[in-house]
Write a protein that binds this DNA or RNA. Structure first.
Length: 216
DNA sequence: ACCCAGGGTCATA
DNA sequence: TATGACCATGGG
């Protein structure tokens, strides 16, 4: 019940986030790859570049010249490797008949397929599962690990799958909508609270916070 | 000048 | 299994 009460605190503080900021499932997928270890603002610039250059579809990305594609991705960093990853992903996606060919697959097999793509790791796969395919998968990111270990709810040394299992077990009876909001709220909270740097993601989640001495 | 961001892969031990 | 190097831009 602790896991849900943290959610309730966040929701009360920030309200619904309506993630993922994108106009289509495909845009979620592209954004999920581009945001790897990268600030979202820079991803938006890269997404705009792709749209301006008229290469914003799976087939257009596949057919695009590597250097042209890489230049579009430049603001989001790692542009050479991300150009390859995007092409990789799109080749797989088109080969699977895109959304129509994938939407009826079971989450476990869809997840395995995503993880087999070079350039798609657990977090990217789970972003896609949750925010593009609307599956009840809990996304574990660095913020989640940090915040919940500081709250004393999980062991920070656990690996990705172990943490995901804990969250999905704790929140077993909740809806996919809650999973959607929860991850978005965690990301927002980490950004909002620590603008100053004191590393205190935890404070406003605790009673009588006062912003004192809670930081690790 | 330094640290970090909505990670992942690959080589090494 | 577990580190470390590498990828690279932009903001604070």
């Amino acid at each position: 019940m602790r896991f849900k009460s943290v959610y309730q605190s966040l929701f009360k503080k920030y309200g619904a986030q309506k993630w993922w900021p994108a106009d289509s499932p495909f845009e979620v997928m592209v954004g999920a790859i581009l945001t790897q270890n990268t600030a979202w603002l820079n991803v938006e610039r890269a997404l705009d570049n792709l749209k301006q250059a008229n290469v914003f579809s799976p087939q257009k990305i596949i057919d695009s010249n590597h250097d042209v594609l890489a230049q579009c991705l430049r603001p989001s960093g790692y542009f050479n490797i991300k150009a390859k990853r995007l092409k990789n992903y799109c080749e797989w996606y088109v080969g699977q008949n895109e959304y129509t060919g994938l939407k009826h697959k079971r989450s476990t097999s869809l997840r395995e397929m995503l993880l087999s793509i070079n350039g798609v790791g657990p977090e990217t796969a789970d972003d896609i599962l949750l925010y593009a395919f609307n599956r009840k998968i809990f996304v574990i990111d660095a913020y989640t690990r940090r915040i919940f270990s500081r709250l004393g709810l999980v062991d920070a040394s656990l690996d990705y799958e172990a943490l995901r299992t804990i969250f999905e077990t704790e929140l077993e009876s909740e809806t996919v909508v809650l999973f959607n909001e929860y991850h978005a709220l965690i990301v927002l909270h980490a950004k909002e609270v620590c603008k100053k740097k004191p590393v205190c993601e935890v404070c406003c989640l605790q009673r009588d916070c006062e912003q004192k001495g809670v930081a690790v």
